[in-house]
Amino acid sequence: MTTSIIIWIIQLLLVPALSPLLVGITRKIKAKLQNRQGASCFQPYRDLWKLFHKNEVMSEDASVIFRFAPYVVFAVTLAIAAGIPLLSSIPIFTGDFLTLIYMLALGTFFLALSGIDTGGAFSGFGSSREMLVASLTEAGLVLSLFALALAAKSTNMGDMATTVSGLSSIAYLPIALAFISFFISLLAESARYPFDNPSTHLELTMIHEAMILEYSGKRLAMMEWASANKYLIFAFLGANLFFPWGLAGTLAPFAIIGSIILSFIKASILAVIVAVIEGSFAKWRLFRLPKLLAGSFILSLIAILLII
């Protein structure tokens, strides 16, 4: 119990500390692929710092929801971050994977409400698209993680990581299939290509950026930061649940530091893949996305059927 609480607190603080870096790395690689120099990997930290010190303009039409939503959205990412296998594969009391998915929905719910709240002509459509993508992603995400739970005979992510690291290469094959399904969900949930363009400011195509269009100052900083946290959480989940080798099984200080570094390297590799996808694909039409998400669902269903 005590170890669980210690891990919980460290992870709660660690994820927001690292998340802007992962966004910076992704942007840097994307810039390189586009033959640009690109900003430093640490630029997102400076952006956040600057936003936190800017004056804020708030819409007259906005209600309490608009003011309160950034806190909820950010806090939800922290609560989720605290429960994932990051420092070690020791099961944590909030580490049930279904709880994680439902908590994500809590954040999405408030994010979408804040988009409607200002009564702008664009932000509401962002909310509508976000809810479309989020609701269609859920089935694939649930089943892709359940494939691991089925192999582990437990829905706690710590146990899932431990089991996957001990699988033989043949037993691992369906897990690889589930990973592809998970990766599609990762792209959808963290607002990446081909679902959303994280760097666009063309109102007609964007999803996440459209919802937070009216935010400024510290609340915008919180929204951006929360979105970075979510991206890092998904990258860590992908890295440590599907490729859990090297994750510490105990709480020895060196093992923990090792698993943090290794986890971040693995997450960065995923970020490179994301950046390569963003460099080589165009964003898809909104109504092509359901097919991709249905593909994710079917892949994880096949993975489940193949697990013995």
Partner: peptide, 19 residues
Amino acid sequence: TYIFVRIFSGQQKVSHGRT
């Protein structure tokens, strides 16, 4: 979250404007 915001943000004004 509340503590984070307290630490990172300075003394800035909030003004109200139109959407």
